[in-house]
Design a protein around this nucleic acid. Sequence first.
DNA 1: TATGAATGAGTATTCATTCAT
DNA 2: GATGAATGAATACTCATTCAT
Lengths: 173, 173, 173, 173
Amino acid sequence: MTDKKENIIQAALELFASEGYNAVATSKIAKVAGVSEGLIFRHFENKKGLLDAIMQDAEIRISQVFAPILFELDPQKVIQKTLELPFSIEQKEYNFWKLQYKLKWEPEYHNPRKMKPVLDKLEWAFAELGYQNPPLEAELVIYILDSIAIAILREGLQSQLKFKSFLVSKYNS
Amino acid sequence: MTDKKENIIQAALELFASEGYNAVATSKIAKVAGVSEGLIFRHFENKKGLLDAIMQDAEIRISQVFAPILFELDPQKVIQKTLELPFSIEQKEYNFWKLQYKLKWEPEYHNPRKMKPVLDKLEWAFAELGYQNPPLEAELVIYILDSIAIAILREGLQSQLKFKSFLVSKYNS
Amino acid sequence: MTDKKENIIQAALELFASEGYNAVATSKIAKVAGVSEGLIFRHFENKKGLLDAIMQDAEIRISQVFAPILFELDPQKVIQKTLELPFSIEQKEYNFWKLQYKLKWEPEYHNPRKMKPVLDKLEWAFAELGYQNPPLEAELVIYILDSIAIAILREGLQSQLKFKSFLVSKYNS
Amino acid sequence: MTDKKENIIQAALELFASEGYNAVATSKIAKVAGVSEGLIFRHFENKKGLLDAIMQDAEIRISQVFAPILFELDPQKVIQKTLELPFSIEQKEYNFWKLQYKLKWEPEYHNPRKMKPVLDKLEWAFAELGYQNPPLEAELVIYILDSIAIAILREGLQSQLKFKSFLVSKYNS
DNA sequence: TATGAATGAGTATTCATTCAT
DNA sequence: GATGAATGAATACTCATTCAT
């Protein structure tokens, strides 16, 4: 990928995340990316195509984040690693995740499939540990983590750190 | 409030909730409301003023939803009533709540103060019941309920009903 | 004329004079006049009708200003009284005169007929006093006075007072 | 400057001069200029920015008109050349000058500084020729010329030609 | 690949005017 | 006479997109 194309994607990610897809003009993306407006449309079919490209990148990044959990064989550690997920988001990835969460409201971009492997693994872990209702326990953990992730993205990591050990001990049988 | 002003608010609420504030043209609001576009600006200073009016109404509605919890004196019932909140959202209020959750990403409209009374009451309840960390328990419940509410708004009540008894029994000491 | 109608005319005169006819919204006139916007259109056919009414009033006021000159029999005094005209505009009439001068650019409102009597009288005076080219002398005086009046309206009387005696002595044979 | 940008300026100058800044819609400017309305706002920040661009061009044009007077060394000729100014306005520059005079009523655009050099030169000329009150004589000449220029712009050169020799002989000591 | 001028449909907003009360 | 809600056409301005270079 050329430098400029990458610039466009970075600028768009930043702007879409902070101001929202609709609120960002392609002219602004071009300015922030330091390229001509026309170039956006040479690299991407249209504005939506640019968003799609960003979201496609996402799938890969997300699966990389999940990999260590999926390869984990100790059920207790599966749960612990999952619980630690939101606390390990790097600052430079905030925009990326903000956009993911904002777009959850657009049916087109909300595909729960992305979480399915983690959900399954969690379910397996809870089953292994003898929990009564593994599927719901697993889903609940995801819910909790979503809310914490959103809070971190909005208010910063510090504000939520208190939950880290709290949750870990809560799920330590 | 005149009929037409109310029409505008209803149309705007519906459209803002489903398509997002920025994505909705005032001309569309007018058409859906069955009024002239100009009337929107006689009643509200500008498009944002219309959103503000909607969100101001919200504060009242929200406090009405919370009232029964705040007046509850039995700690166990406080928790139970709170847990039941998302499952009792009426269909006709979906738009209203969708908008609330979507706008959480706009700092201007996300004021956690709205939840503070419930949070305090929950904390009190957990303390009464001898939980080790009442503040975090309380906040965690809110997080869970937020996620469930969002899921209900997106996928319907049916998809989440399974959580109702699951949560109630989980918090039944 | 009712109070409110008069209010409208006063407000319109003030606003038209200071901001220009096109730049003033009828809603603003109504607000300044302290009446409903609808009332403007009950009293005047439309916005232009309001301007016309103002300009019709003008004709009368202007002829009153000119009367003392037209009745003067001493040619020297005719000239002197004319020269003193712009210096005797009362502050509260500034808006009125500003509007007159601004509208000179609209052919519809610039009618040189208004000045004709004064011009004729001046011409007669210059002829009486043996000037070589009375018509041009007369017209020149009007030109000078117009420029001075405009300067006074724009910058205040003080800035132009120096011209008063200068002109009087210049035309004192 | 591209062709189209120049077209816009020409169309705007023409329309602003004849109908007034506020009375001209940007859509009309675009139509007369033969460009899309959007282009106006690519080249100029907004409607006022277009006016500003026109008025900036003006400063240059005006100083070019004044140059021959400022370089003149014979005081008598300084006066004569000044007196001839309004009679030498070319027809194709009428719009330009109309706009200058119309905008004199907007404090933002009326800057007397533009005339200062000519005024100073005139004052010097009158002093050289032994006039009693050179500053006022100079200012008076400018006043007369303004009125004549306005009359020419409104009624055509023919109507005012009679003043040319009249004034020249008046100021020929 | 990259630019930047240009477009045309669309956007929020204003405004003169109407009308029921 | 007077109000104020309501309209619809117009206005300044924006934006995604195209295209010649």
